[in-house]
Design a protein around this nucleic acid. Structure first.
Lengths: 226, 226
DNA sequence: TAACTTTGTGTCAAATCAACGCAAAGAAGC
DNA sequence: GCTTCTTTGCGTTGATTTGACACAAAGTTA
């Protein structure tokens, strides 16, 4: 085995794919770099891992200091090792993705500098580094994960209606899903609980308000949407 | 952003969960350490990432030089960041898993030093570092992946029979699977192709020989074994 | 040749799924 | 008020898939 201490360790970066959902649109948070390399190019937010940090600490630091977000759902995605991925030298990226609830979405959308911006996932600019590939993998992961684990709720308020949930799934999966079959399956899967309350407001029939089921049974399963 | 060059980067290790299959037994390759820390303790094989290496290069180097294996199926698993996971200092581990075909299994099983050994996954010793957790995750990944992707073939010879494949799945998933339903599903999924040949030998009825379908249709799917 | 093991193929009732109908609740227009 | 329209909740039905078996063909053993 090689000597343990080495001044030749690659740098370790954490890159973040931050997803938000509002107005029937799935969006990603991008950052316009103000320094070389890739100056004036949109990229994923990120930072270098500090010696005493765990991955999620670095994620939280980025989300907090750069974007003013707290209490965010985080998941490790994949590690990227292409030697030429950063022109400055060898940088390994440990990519994560984050799901932002509407409260955080609204705060950041209002107060952000113009070098930080939400982009509809269908209308993204070209990205610097290998961030296009990282983004693509993150979206793929989100799409497959939502089919077997109740992860979408992180993108909604605590209380939500069935049509809202239905639209979220259609939006993430980018398909149409039969409203009535979706309802039956998501209820069978026990992902959500009917609170008994109803959403009052402008709509026609007032829809029931649901919440995420925090202790969902062990035998959770494939949703198999349509 | 922090300064780019830093002498304080964590070390980067690649750890490998090497799976092999023979005699209806799923096994893992372990290494008995001959130096501190964890001297005389069984651990997963691994090495530190060199500056010019991609992850898979490091994997191949370990497999080749320590274990004499070539042409191995490799997949990145997960990255482990617990600051105390290595008593020598901060070491990030990028875990991978490997699937070894019987040819390589036989070679290594015969020629290995006694500090390298295959262990039935049901009869493993205690592992050093956080390798027990890494192993557990690898096994979990293999078990879920085999349900939606034809990955098991990496553990078999190029030609194999239906009963052999059936036993492999039972062994990996650690359940019993109805022989006839398994057959129907694996054929429906178009994972394999009947070569027309038959395995001659000691057995009773000579079973058909199949091969892995290398261009399997895009619409690949959940197997949903029993 | 008979008994037994192993492998390939088929059957069938039960469960699941996709497609769709319909009525209740509320809004909008008259 | 009354009618019409939209939205939401709840069912139904026919087709498909699934799990549990039966059975026959191929080979071995005695």
């Amino acid at each position: 085995m090689k000597p343990f201490h080495s001044y030749q360790n690659p740098s370790l970066a954490i890159d973040l794919v931050v997803f938000g959902y509002q107005q029937r649109t799935l969006s990603v948070l991008l950052l316009n770099r103000n320094e070389m390399p890739f100056k004036d190019t949109w990229t994923l937010p990120g930072a270098f891992l500090q010696m005493d940090e765990r991955f999620k600490d670095t994620c939280s630091r980025v989300l907090k200091t750069k974007l003013g977000m707290d209490n965010v759902y985080l998941e490790q995605l994949y590690s990227f090792d292409e030697p030429e991925r950063d022109p400055r030298g060898r940088v390994i990226a440990i990519a994560h993705y984050a799901l932002i609830n509407p409260k955080n979405f609204a705060i950041t959308a209002g107060s952000m500098a113009n070098d930080v911006q939400w982009f509809d996932i269908h209308q993204m600019p070209e990205l610097g580094f290998d961030h296009q590939e990282i983004f693509t993998q993150a979206l793929q992961r989100l799409r497959s994960k939502i089919l077997y684990f109740p992860v979408g709720f992180e993108l909604l308020d605590d209380l939500f209606t069935m049509p809202e949930l239905h639209e979220l799934y259609e939006c993430i999966l980018d398909t149409t899903i039969d409203r009535r079959n979706f309802r039956r399956k998501i209820l069978d899967a026990q992902y959500i609980i009917n609170t008994g309350k109803k959403r009052e407001g402008l709509q026609n029939r007032h829809p029931d308000l649901y919440k995420f089921n925090k202790k969902l049974p062990k035998n959770a399963f494939q949703l198999n949407i349509n």
